[in-house]
Design a protein around this nucleic acid. Structure first.
Length: 481
DNA sequence: CTGGGGAAGGGGCCC
DNA sequence: TGGGCCCCTTCCCCA
């Protein structure tokens, strides 16, 4: 007979012991803050600690001390609370760092939850986006409410109906049990159904991707994890590989990509700081060859170390590196990582007012707007010759604008038609803080532009003013407010 | 089918 | 930290 609550109570007791500093035999120093914990609990929860403690198991009489600077004390608090409670407190602000730390500590379940959290956040943002566009209501935006998620692996509810609730006022969702729909975490043995859901999700993304050639806008709005082999693999509905086998394959695949990082084979990429007293300040990844091979054998299917990494420059000064949790990319600056992450998350916060196309970066939007809608290039699109205000004019084709020289205009039969730029609404490029506001293509404003159709194409010709750059800046800012 | 050009998108880095 | 510029690669369209 099995008492389902036993595991929960046992962990609860261990957590109480941790809080009361009873029987704690391991100290973890994170950026100066000391955490007390139990070796056996850490061993059971983290591949990193498993490796660390197994290598130091000969000296069990002395307390183990591990030092980390690769993540913040707050992040480790979240991790440790999860270890001792099964509940992971994720927010939009901490999820990346928690995921990085979990990657560092080789806690696959936490990584999975973080990935699901990120993905679900994107789903929600997509829904908000849809709602926004459908309502055309600027206030629908997130309003900066921090959405957080409390993940709970609650054994007591293993057989109870799933429950989750979302508090829209606080933007907080609390989910527990084994059956959440979006933020769900399942033990490995229970993930098949979730994988099927992911497969459906990815199938949808594939179909969306295929529509790109049809000129549909949505492809740029839908996040897809193009660099995530995990996602690609899980998206294969024909796969008959069992979950556990699949995970091993995935991990092996990632390991091979990160081999240089994981066991310190690459001298230039090492954990930012790692000091372990029992290891004589030796990283578990840089142990002796025999140990390494043993570790390879024992932990070969564990995930690679992702997240914030550090390297040592030739002058022995630590040099920060930021490791993308989704791919092997490493950048020097946090801001660059943030920017890079958008290519994984699919976030495109910069919409073009003129055509609605969305961009992940403001400079890309600027470039797009200049080239597509402002006709900044003083070059005839047809004959490629340089044009001035005297020798050419701006032609509008839909929301596109480009320049044609007078000869090419005459050839096209659309010469001597000018547009009153004064009457045209000015486009104001989005300022900071506008990124969340949705620009709207104004049909009303559109009517302010004198449109001349030449039959086959929707062409509008505007007078070119190349006299000054300033004038060019003010020129042709169409349809946007 | 192929090559060229334009646009998009990603990274590095400066301000 | 964000904006912006430059450079490069990739993708797509078109002749």
């Amino acid at each position: 007979m099995e008492i389902s609550s036993h595991q929960f109570h046992l962990l609860q007791q261990l957590n109480e012991q941790r809080k009361q500093d009873l029987f704690c035999d391991c100290c973890i120093l994170v950026e100066g803050k000391v955490f007390k914990a139990h070796r056996n609990v850490l061993f059971a929860s983290s591949g990193y600690f498993k490796m660390l403690l197994s290598q130091g198991s000969k000296e069990t009489s002395q307390p183990t001390t591990a030092t980390f600077q690769a993540f913040s004390p707050d992040t480790f608090t979240v991790i440790l609370d999860f270890v001792y409670s099964g509940k992971l407190s994720l927010t939009g602000q901490n999820v990346i760092e928690v995921m990085s730390a979990a990657s560092y500590l080789q806690m696959t379940d936490v990584i999975s939850v973080c990935k699901t959290f990120i993905k679900s956040s994107l789903d929600i943002s997509e829904k908000e986006k849809d709602r926004y566009f459908s309502l055309s209501d600027k206030d629908v935006n997130s309003n900066g409410v921090e959405r957080s998620c409390l993940y709970g692996a609650d054994w007591r509810t293993e057989n109870s109906p799933p429950h989750s609730h979302l508090n829209p006022d606080q933007g907080t969702c609390v989910m527990s049990g084994n059956a959440w729909s979006n933020f769900s975490y399942y033990p490995t043995s229970q993930r098949n159904s979730q994988q099927q859901q992911l497969a459906k999700h990815d199938q949808r993304q594939d179909s969306i991707k295929k529509t790109r050639h049809l000129g549909l806008q949505q492809s740029s709005d839908i996040p897809h994890y193009k660099s995530s082999k995990l996602e690609d693999r899980s998206s294969d509905p024909t796969s008959h590989i069992s979950q556990s086998e699949e995970e091993v394959q995935i991990d092996t695949e990632i390991d091979s990509a990160h081999a240089g990082y994981q066991y310190g084979q690459g001298s230039d990429v090492m954990p930012r700081s790692l000091a372990v007293s029992q290891q004589e300040h030796e990283s578990p990844h840089s142990s002796s060859k025999s140990k390494s091979s043993k570790a390879d054998e024992q932990y070969g299917n564990m995930p690679s170390i992702l997240g914030v990494m550090g390297s040592w420059a030739e002058d022995d000064l630590p040099r920060m590196r930021f490791k993308c949790p989704f791919c092997t990319h490493v950048v020097k600056r946090k801001a660059d990582l943030k920017r890079h992450l958008r290519c994984h998350t699919g976030e495109r916060p910069y919409p073009c007012e003129a055509c609605g196309k969305r961009f992940s970066r403001l400079d890309h939007l600027s470039s797009h707007f200049r080239t597509i809608h402002q006709a900044c290039k003083p070059i005839c699109r047809k004959c490629k010759r340089h044009v001035t205000e005297l020798t050419g004019q701006v032609v509008q084709e839909g929301t596109r604008r480009y320049r044609l020289c007078n000869e090419c205009l005459a050839e096209a039969g659309i010469d001597s038609i000018r547009i009153d730029l004064e009457a045209e609404p000015q486009l104001e490029f989005p300022q900071e803080g506008d990124k969340d506001s949705r620009w709207h293509y104004s049909e009303d404003n559109r009517s302010d532009v004198e449109i001349v159709e030449d039959g086959s194409t929707d062409l509008v010709i505007q007078q070119v003013d190349d006299s000054e750059d300033e004038a060019e800046e003010q020129e042709v800012k169409p349809n946007i407010r």
